[in-house]
């Protein structure tokens, strides 16, 4: 009897964290009554636009130091979601188009379905005119010099954390500093506390607000081991009509490092879905097409 209880509890624990995988190319919206794990799985599904077949977007990135001095980058991003046909979940291609000094720099990443595998990464290096396989960046490294880590942008997976639902509430709103606008005020949200499974990681926990209407994370607070909040990440979402469905799409992202008062803002535009982008655009050959 005692062993039976333990087994049941064990199985329940597994399902509490490791929710069943969602289907590719299908849209999900969280609902009251779902577990924290189920809600977060939808949040990841949306973050990596796994509901779509392909995705294209332009991003304007601003690195702003406390004095207001600003550096800018512009990138083009392409993604294809492989679906069920192989062991790759999705492939990403990011190419820098501004400033000229790094124009042409392009990164091709393949993300495996197996969350225990790192990404495969290739880089087009303009100064060598060469496509080069590179080691995946460390997850806690800054993503392209921003305040976001590599993990926060591209490598964190649903399986990397444990989740606890802290409640449901209307979000108080945040100010997008780049434009000064108040965003997401009053949005009904799930509040979830996420803790990394890795020990001695760069954060101890994060608290996220997931928008009930589309399942996208609109706000995150990062805490260190002392309980001090050291970073916030805000994301603005829009719903784009594609073939009668409303795809949740990030249109701005702002990350503030509260220790240095440095921030990174990304304003996204020209988002397009399901254009039938050929998979050949996500190959080393495609990287070598670069002219810059």
């Amino acid at each position: 009897m005692k062993w039976g209880t333990l087994i049941v509890v064990f199985i329940l624990c597994i399902f509490a964290v490791e929710a069943l995988p969602l289907e590719y190319h299908r849209l999900y919206v969280p609902a009251s009554g779902m577990s924290a794990g189920e809600i977060m799985e939808i949040a990841y599904h949306n973050k990596y636009s796994l509901f779509a077949k392909d995705f294209q977007q332009e991003g304007n990135v601003f690195y702003v130091d406390p004095s207001g001095f600003t550096r800018k980058r512009i990138w083009e991003r392409l993604r294809i979601v492989e679906g069920d046909k192989g062991d790759i979940s999705y492939k990403d291609l990011i190419a820098i188009t501004y400033p000229t000094e790094v124009k042409g720099l392009a990164v091709l990443t393949w993300t495996y379905k197996d969350y225990q595998k790192d990404q495969e990464v290739w880089l087009w290096i303009p100064s060598l005119k060469k496509a080069r396989k590179i080691s995946a960046s460390e997850d806690d490294d800054a993503f392209m010099g921003s305040d976001l880590t590599v993990e926060e942008v591209s490598t964190r997976r649903f399986e990397d954390e444990t989740y606890e639902l802290k409640g449901e509430d209307a979000f108080k709103g945040y100010t997008l500093e780049e434009t000064g606008e108040m965003k997401a005020q009053g949005a009904p949200c799930f509040i979830i506390e996420c803790r990394p499974k890795k020990s001695h990681w760069y954060y101890d926990k994060r608290v996220v607000w997931v928008d009930k209407s589309h399942g996208g994370i609109i706000f995150e607070e990062y805490y260190d081991k002392t309980g001090r909040k050291f970073k916030t990440v805000s994301r603005e979402w829009d719903l784009i009509d594609v073939n009668g469905q409303r795809y949740p799409t990030q249109i701005s992202l702002e990350c503030k490092d509260l220790r240095t008062n440095h921030r990174t803002t990304i304003l996204m535009s020209n988002t397009r879905y399901d254009q039938g982008i050929d998979e050949q655009n996500f190959t080393v050959k495609a990287l070598m097409r670069s002219r810059w």
């Binding site: 495996y112 225990q116 595998k117 790192d118 990464v121 590179i134 080691s135 995946a136």
Partner: peptide, 16 residues
């Protein structure tokens, strides 16, 4: 070239 993407002591290593 090959990157070691699996968990283990070689994780993150690229051999060319």
């Amino acid at each position: 070239n090959r990157s070691f993407v699996e968990r283990g002591p070689l994780e993150g290593l690229t051999i060319r």
